[in-house]
Amino acid sequence: MSAGTLEMAILDGILTGGVYALMAAGLTLIFGVLDMINIAQGIFVILGAYASYSLEHSFGIGLFEGLIITIPAMFLLGAFIEWAFIRRLGEYNRVSMSILVTYAVTIVIEGVLLLHFGSNYRSLTASYVTQSFHVFGNYLPKIYLYGFLLALASVLVLYFILYKTRLGVSVRAAMDNRFAAQLVGVEVKRVSTLTFAIGVAVTAVGGMVFGAVQPFTPNSSYDLISRLLTIVVLGGLGSVGGALVGALVMVVVEDIISVAWTPTWATLIYFAVLVIVLLLKPQGLFGQREVRAQ
């Protein structure tokens, strides 16, 4: 290991972690407000990647410009899925039923993507995907930096909505105490639709960066969702801040182990960290189980 490699690995970890953080934030937000696990978050990311791919290949629309179309499109898709399927879930066995329903959504979207695009790996290409900045004697891939900045901006927008707007107050109230929020006139149904739609809309950004960094097929969603779930469990279900920290911990831990020791154990060490955290704090790093139990 040469000097600077470890620092680069940490930087890489933070940049990549930022993108996972955004995708996980959407997932945890949906859990918080709707009391459900959205297994389809992984396929939404892949769908976002394919959306960017299609715009680029069919209309020559660049990856970043394309977001102007893909973000609202994913938002509407999210709103539709919430309205069509999630709203029909009752209180009884809600979490397990939500897993089944969103798994079904996953399979349908995956099938449509397979029909349309086939199962070969696709990649998003643009000049900056294979270019890099030269900083402090190291090369920093442009796409990682751009992707991170984009994810950061999206997370900031998410925070602004959550903490500064009327909708945000409603969303957080519904996350805190769905029943009581309804009591004081928060239209939980509408807030649920909007939250689900926002949670899905962020996958347009996540998918674009994911697809630019690594090749994808319609089947890529399963690895992704399992990672996202470990992130939100580590960070604490329903905690947006927890999702951000969880994502950074995941990627940075693996990257450091990969470089400082061996990639063979990197994934295992991360899962060991996850298990230890859950043993010490079963609600995750920032989970507030006692509040939710009210």
């Binding site: 009327r166 107050v169 409603s170 957080r172 109230a173 996350m175 805190d176 105490n177 029943f179 009581a180 929020a181 009591l183 004081v184 006139g185 928060v186 239209e187 507030q288 509040v291 009210q294």
Partner: peptide, 18 residues
Amino acid sequence: KIFARMTVMENMFIATQR
């Protein structure tokens, strides 16, 4: 039923959302 993770002031704004 209060909203424990929000501040007292934020609790006050919830009921104005309709």
